[in-house]
């Protein structure tokens, strides 16, 4: 679920290396473009398909709620898996397409699509057996629909009901990214002969959604957040976590990279996928946080870090993120310590 709502479709984080994004998001990129991108993300769609269709024993004759259903693909998977009835909810007008699509595929008697905010609508069942949702945003939490999923859980899910997926984990690692940091951040030092340093500061404070090559990863990954969707609350979305990054080799660290893993543990054979740099491309890519310093690390050395995340007070969909780091070494010339503030907006 990355930005299905037209008003929120902003150019801000949509920049990829070497790919131009629209000047203004035209209705094309707001409508089919997003859904095409999400459906064509095979890691995402195939994982959901496997988790649902391979577990007919869990779905048979069950009432299923699809939160943020989009084109309705997950709802249709659930019907294929034997669900008695599926309710798909989305606030976007894509719901009209979802209805048409379900009809064309002869599944319209099994799926009820409702347009509106989860918090404001009434669904035709007092309780549901299973909640399915693809709610994840960039950095897992940016513009995510998790709060809506948790609302639906508390309001509608049966006591022993299932959530697909039910586990999400954020990881962080250090990366060598000198060339691109130069291009991305250093660029503002000399723009056609002009000093653009004010934009450099902004560039440093904006995490970059981008793909990172595995060979750029210098340290072991560290886990900074694990969410159990059965028990977590919206308060858990503001968190602070200390962690250590241990260097695998002698190298430089220009930035930290964050990604997330998703698990469907209810499945007979657990289904999981990762959005990390070590595995296949997903439309979530990874999120890169450039550091002010360049850390020079030797194999086995430890960078003590902490990451603090909280929704912005003024705009809850934006994230304020603080990263602190400290490299303690025998060699005083390489010692480094600092903190950076970031805003995902």
């Amino acid at each position: 679920m990355v930005r299905t709502h037209p008003v929120e479709a902003r150019v801000c984080t949509a920049l990829h290396r070497g790919v131009f994004v629209p000047l203004l998001t035209s209705s094309f990129s707001r409508n089919q473009g997003i859904h095409e991108e999400m459906l064509k993300d095979e890691v995402r769609t195939r994982s959901y398909m496997n988790a649902i269709v391979q577990n007919k024993h869990l779905f048979k004759d069950k009432i299923v709620l699809d939160v943020g259903c989009g084109t309705g693909i997950l709802s249709m998977f659930a019907v294929k898996a034997g669900a008695k009835h599926v309710i798909g909810v989305d606030m976007s007008t894509i719901i009209f397409k979802a209805r048409e699509i379900a009809k064309v595929n002869g599944l319209d008697d099994k799926i009820t699509f409702i347009q509106g905010k989860m918090e404001e609508i009434e669904i035709p069942f007092p309780k549901v057996d299973i909640i399915i949702s693809e709610w994840m945003g960039y950095f897992l939490l940016y513009e995510s629909m998790l709060d809506t999923v948790l609302y639906a859980r508390d309001r509608y899910l049966e006591k022993d009901g299932l959530i697909f997926p039910d586990k999400a984990t954020i990881f962080v690692a250090g990366i060598e990214d000198g060339d691109y940091k130069d291009e991305k951040i250093g660029f503002w030092d000399n723009v056609y002969g002009f000093n653009y340093s004010p934009l450099k500061e902004t560039a440093l404070s904006e995490p970059l959604v981008d793909t990172v090559e595995i060979k750029a990863v210098v340290t072991d990954p560290a886990n900074v957040l694990t969410l159990d969707l059965y028990t977590c609350t919206t308060e858990d979305l503001a968190f602070s976590c200390p962690f250590d990054l241990v260097s695998r080799r002698d190298d430089f660290i220009h930035a930290l990279v964050a990604w997330f893993d998703i698990e469907f543990t209810a499945c007979h054979k657990p289904v999981r996928f990762s959005t990390g740099p070590h595995t296949k491309y997903t439309h979530w890519k990874q999120t890169v946080f450039y550091l002010k310093d360049v850390l020079t690390v030797q194999q086995g050395e430890k960078v003590e870090c902490s990451l603090h995340n909280r929704p912005n007070e003024k705009n809850k969909r934006d994230l304020d993120i603080k990263i602190q780091y400290r490299l303690e070494t025998q060699d005083p010339t390489r010692q480094a310590e600092g903190q950076c503030l970031y805003k995902m907006c």
């Binding site: 035209s26 209705s27 094309f28 409508n31 089919q32 859904h35 095409e36 459906l39 769609t45 195939r46 398909m49 084109t71 693909i73 249709m76 998977f77 294929k80 397409k97 048409e100 699509i101 064309v104 595929n105």
Partner: peptide, 17 residues
């Protein structure tokens, strides 16, 4: 699309530049 016919999505393809 994963075994489903989503031709409903095609209509906008022709209405948007």
């Amino acid at each position: 699309v994963y075994g489903f016919d989503m031709k409903a999505m095609q209509s906008d393809i022709y209405t948007d530049a």
